[in-house]
Write a protein that binds this DNA or RNA. Structure first.
Lengths: 242, 242
DNA sequence: CAAATATGACTGACTAGTCAGTCATTGTCA
DNA sequence: TGACAATGACTGACTAGTCAGTCATATTTG
């Protein structure tokens, strides 16, 4: 029950060590708080607020990725972001909203990348290979990969997130893949016509690479890009030139 | 900590409604308690204890799969299993041990399946296809698939589980795949020799199918077996006969 | 200085784990 | 074999502790 029947009067809160506290918190290798302390030319309200929010988002991302939704403590997020817990509530309604908003925000760059010019100049294979190289280097290796794992983990418990992810990322990405495959088939680059029905097959190795990184990289490193090239050889036939 | 320095007298607990409580608990539609009530020929202590344990394992599996480790309440597991919370601690040391032991137990059948006769009679493709069909039907669709998702979700937070899973399932499975691929290459069934370096490519679609089921089946059903057959066509070349 | 922001102590709901007490089953003995 | 004693599986009320969310107070800004 946590009695806490004491503390009857609280003789005067007296925030004495404010500076000290800040100093201590600045001393820690916290990402953004340091940045705030150094480069603060003037920073009006809006800017500072945006910076704070960014710091919170960054910290929350780290914590959620490391521990999952349920096991993450808002106290830890606040500490890592260099703010008080109450401040979190100035930016987010509650823990759940924070989590959902975070995932969505984190996916925005991915989405814009997907919507980027799908103009094909050379062989389709090169397009797919470039796409995969970017994906594996920028997703499987970075924290965006963790986001994918987070979605796999928490998706079933956050249908809103799974829905959003399917709508904004998966279906768009698969549609793009579908188009590429169709093009490659008409061009004769791909012989297996059935592949058009399962664009998931194109990206499957990339997904596996992401999962492998977070679970087994320690036991057996996996060169995702090399693996994907072999995969492309299967799809497009073995490459002639080196 | 758990002080417990107090409790000097405990005025006399007086458990009055023992019978009533039992009746109530029996009335609930609990899985195993019902079974016990009906088919109880004699059921000595050991048998009953084993049944209890099985009920707990079953219930715990359901709860952990549905909510993840952190969000699962032991009270709920106990209620679902039709036992008191204290009983859980007669079978498991604590929540974490319970979780880990559960995962291991759940994988035993999978492991024995992997260690099963790898004798190849016909084409390697048929062996792989049979293997995949079993896997997708018995794993992607059933609760074993949830276990895989659970490992992906909680693995990073339970290194012991990730280690165990890698050692007992992943590395063995990949080694088996590697052997199959080698055989197929020497037989001329597979032309792409590099495939031997990445046996993960063989199983990637199966993994993706598992994940798809739990996240997106609602939005867009996926025929995992059909997908895998197309995948095999890519690896072995398109199948001649229907 | 008033308004806008930020703080962190505090609350209360919730939960892992404990343990004194109960009682069905098993063992013992006449 | 029937009565009685011993056992230990089982129970659930209870404790200590945790943590999301609040709000009175303090600080900063314009």
């Amino acid at each position: 029950m946590t009695k806490r029947t004491d503390k009857p009067t609280r003789p005067s809160p007296q925030r004495p060590r404010q500076a000290a506290i800040r100093a201590a918190s600045a001393k820690t290798p916290k990402v953004v708080s340091a940045k705030l302390a150094e480069a603060r030319p003037v920073a009006n309200r809006a800017e500072r607020s945006a910076e704070r929010r960014a710091a919170i988002v960054e910290a929350a991302m780290d914590e959620f990725v490391a521990r999952g939704f349920a096991a993450t403590r808002l106290d830890d997020i606040a500490k890592r972001a260099g703010v008080a817990k109450g401040t979190l509530y100035l930016h987010f309604k509650d823990k759940e909203s924070m989590f959902e908003e975070l995932i969505r925000t984190a996916l925005v760059p991915l989405i814009s990348r997907l919507a980027a010019p799908p103009t094909i100049t050379g062989p389709v294979r090169d397009a797919v290979e470039g796409f995969a190289e970017i994906f594996i280097r920028e997703v499987a290796t970075t924290r965006r990969g963790d986001i994918i794992r987070l979605i796999v983990s928490e998706g079933p418990r956050f249908p809103a997130i799974a829905d959003f992810y399917f709508r904004e990322v998966v279906s768009k990405g698969l549609a793009a893949m579908h188009r590429l495959v169709q093009l490659a088939i008409t061009r004769g680059e791909i012989r297996q016509k059935e592949l058009a029905h399962f664009p998931q097959l194109i990206v499957a190795p990339a997904i596996v690479a992401v999962i492998w990184q977070s679970l087994f990289a320690r036991h057996a490193p996996l060169d995702g890009i090399a693996m994907f090239k072999v995969h492309l050889d299967l799809i497009f036939g073995e490459r002639r030139t080196t």
